[in-house]
Amino acid sequence: MRNRKGKWTNDKQKRFVLLVDIMGFSAFVQDTPFAEARKKLECFRRSLDTRSENLLKGGHLKLAFFSDSILVVTESDTPEDLNRISKAGVVLMQESFNNGFAIKGCLAHGKFLYDAGESIFFGLPLVDAYRLGDQELKYYGIIVHHTAEKMIRKLNEPFKKTINGKEKQQGNNAYIYSRVPLKSSGWSCHCHLAWNLYDETLRFPVDNTPKCKLNLEEIELTVSGAPRIYIDNTRDVMERDRKLYNDEEGANPVLFPIREEK
Results as ranks from 00 to 15, higher is better:
E157T: 13
E136H: 03
A148H: 09
I143F: 01
D134L: 08
I142T: 09
G141W: 04
R131A: 13
V144C: 06
L155H: 09
V127A: 09
L155T: 03
L155W: 04
K150D: 13
D128A: 06
N156V: 11
A129T: 04
R131G: 01
Y139I: 05
L132S: 00
K138Q: 14
T162N: 01
A129P: 03
H145L: 12
Q135L: 15
L155I: 07
G133W: 00
I142C: 08
K138G: 09
F159C: 01
K138E: 15
K150W: 07
L132D: 03
E136Y: 02
K161N: 02
E149V: 13
P158Y: 07
M151T: 10
K154M: 14
K150E: 15
I143S: 11
R153W: 13
G133R: 03
T147R: 07
T147N: 12
L126A: 13
T147I: 10
E136K: 06
Q135P: 00
K138H: 14
V127S: 06
R131C: 11
A129R: 06
G141P: 12
N156S: 12
L137K: 02
K161V: 09
K138I: 04
E136A: 11
Y130T: 12
V144K: 02
I142Y: 05
V127N: 04
H145F: 15
A129M: 07
P125F: 05
Y139E: 03
K161Y: 03
G141S: 11
I142Q: 07
Y139M: 08
P125C: 07
I163L: 08
P125L: 06
K161A: 08
D128Y: 10
Y140I: 08
D128S: 10
